[in-house]
Design a protein around this nucleic acid. Structure first.
Lengths: 348, 348
DNA sequence: CTGTTAGCGCATTCAA
DNA sequence: TTGAATGCGCTAACAG
């Protein structure tokens, strides 16, 4: 029977002020990097902060703050259901946000129009404290992000990263790892027979789709050489296009053993599989757990769904923004978004 | 380009006091269910609370509280590595807890001794505000939990539930679903050939082991009848015993295609598999992602690991305790512990 | 550039 | 059984 405790109360801003021989207000100014303090004074205060191991008390800060922090979510318009879930999740967290003194707004933009996206982003300057954006990786967008960050706005990319930008943080999964995961699932579910595997994606110009496809191919080539991967088909994430692609695929490849759907629009593929009577003997792996994909998993048309938890992602983005503002520590392992694998048996 | 905002500032305790025509102190007494208030007064205040839709501001409450809340973790002694991870996770959260005005202590007890566990639990009465316990389901334990809860302590069962007790909350996974998940993985990885599958567990008297085994059998029988499941072997969660069990198993069943390890001690099974040269042609599914099982996944001896996130579990337990105390809402979907499936490709 | 002064919303003495 | 008063640690408005 072993035990352990913690005690010791922490240093306050006032302790810091005393130690540095300045006033509370001045100490506060340097902690919050506000202007109007001589460099020498800043140094004194910082020294005191280090000496006393000072960290602001988030509860006190939150209570004292009158003006709420403003965060803007920029999400794709014409939403597929995963994007819809993101929206619902921000909605689901307004209560919690209010407790944290944050207000949010959702703006829907056309993802495929970089100029519009970039314009929307730039327009937020000065109007909010953080923008959380599901962006596409394009020079215009990158520069808009850099601009915002330069102006002191926290920018968090969500789901789809803009790695070359100065974004404060990315919240999402490693898409090539997701693609590799899909490949292992496909390879092991199909088994040892020689056969073909198809890939249907939205567009190769979408960074996450391209990355998933890359990871998928990598593992298939290395570990399942008896399965030949057909050239990728682009269905624009629309069920209708996906359905006709899948139908053709099935017709022209009698030895088609598996389909990996990289993007959205799985309903079309399921329809094709059912119409051709191949729903149960073709391995079908796709992304994002929605009420639709959940049902397809249960009825056996889909065999596995790879997911990123939308709720986790929005909460995580919010917590990270909060942490940036008040320089709290972020628990990196709480904020890591998992590559979830769902089978019919472990559905939430 | 659509948008939406929230505003409106909330009612404070003072608003409630005014509305009910009592003092701040009295309002506070009824909100926190403290004694010494006439029933009629309580009713008045509660009416005001409802009328104004009052909810305490967690930041203010936390700031004003001088005496920290005390939580005690009661965990199994002689820890296997998963339990060790739980301990590390409480350690990893002390900083965060301090911000929330909570102090914690970890007590290690012999899980297999219900009397001692029960005694330890009862001993906490009056010494803490919450106990978070990884218990075993036994009448003595159940009654100790009921006793604590009756005394006003928040009791949260962790990982292993005591469903018949009055515990405030259970944080953990659905173990029969986990067992079913294991079965699907085994069934699909093995494929269509006739063969045998073995189950090794710690003890059938451990509720979670029994439940996993149950779920496993259920799916195997229904969906993979060509795979016959051998009678379960009890290895007490120890690597040595598991190794000899696995070795015998392999020797006596040439057509053994898969092993499902329900509990701890996977190192022994891996050793046996390697020693007999069967590491790569026997499907091996086990539980809990540790540095060891991670390595076995990467080297191909284990094919899948089913996990419950230890960090998520302790944070969740903590958040739920906090929410109970300050009657904040709990985000159920944030607190749901997932049945994680890890392959070598989606490792964190 | 720096200091003084009020609160934020609630918990908690201490009086009545 | 109830109320008045104080302060938690920080932000922000206002003086100097």
């Amino acid at each position: 029977m072993e035990s352990r405790e913690q005690t010791r109360s922490r240093a306050t801003l006032e302790d810091v002020a005393n130690d540095a021989q300045v006033s509370l207000a001045t100490a506060d100014r340097v902690v919050n990097k506000r202007p109007g303090v001589r460099a020498a004074t800043v140094a004194k205060v910082n020294a005191a902060i280090r000496r006393l191991d000072y960290r602001p008390d988030p509860a006190a800060a939150r209570l004292a703050r009158t003006r709420p922090r403003r965060v803007v979510f920029v999400l794709p318009a014409g939403a597929n259901s995963f994007v819809g879930m993101l929206g619902e999740q921000v909605e689901a967290n307004v209560e919690w946000m209010r407790d944290q003194r944050v207000e949010s707004k959702v703006i829907a933009v056309d993802v495929f129009n970089p100029a519009e996206l970039a314009h929307t982003l730039r327009a937020q300057e000065g109007h909010c404290d953080a923008v959380i954006v599901m962006a596409l990786d394009h020079p215009l967008v990158r520069s808009a992000i850099d601009h915002l960050v330069h102006a002191g706005t926290v920018v968090i990319t969500l789901v789809s990263d803009v790695p070359s930008s100065a974004r404060t943080h990315f919240v999402g999964i490693d898409n090539s790892a997701a693609g590799r995961t899909a490949a292992t699932l496909v390879g092991r579910f199909v088994g040892k027979r020689r056969a073909k595997a198809a890939v249907i994606l939205g567009s190769l110009s979408l960074r996450d789709h391209a990355e998933r496809y890359f990871g998928f191919n990598q593992v298939m080539a290395q570990e399942y050489p008896h399965l030949s991967v057909l050239p990728p088909l682009e269905g624009q994430d629309t069920p209708a296009r996906n359905e006709s692609l899948a139908t053709q695929l099935i017709a022209s490849h009698p030895d088609l053993a598996a389909i990996y759907s990289v993007g959205a629009g799985n309903a079309g593929i399921c329809a094709a599989l059912r119409a051709t009577g191949r729903a149960h003997d073709t391995v079908f792996v796709g992304h994002e757990l929605t009420s639709a994909s959940r049902a397809e998993l249960l009825n056996g048309t889909m065999d596995a769904v790879i997911n990123q938890d939308a709720g986790h992602e929005v909460r995580s983005a919010l917590r990270i923004a909060l942490a940036q503002w008040s320089k709290e520590a972020v628990l990196s392992d709480q904020e890591r978004i998992r590559i979830d694998i769902y089978l019919k048996d472990n559905l939430p």
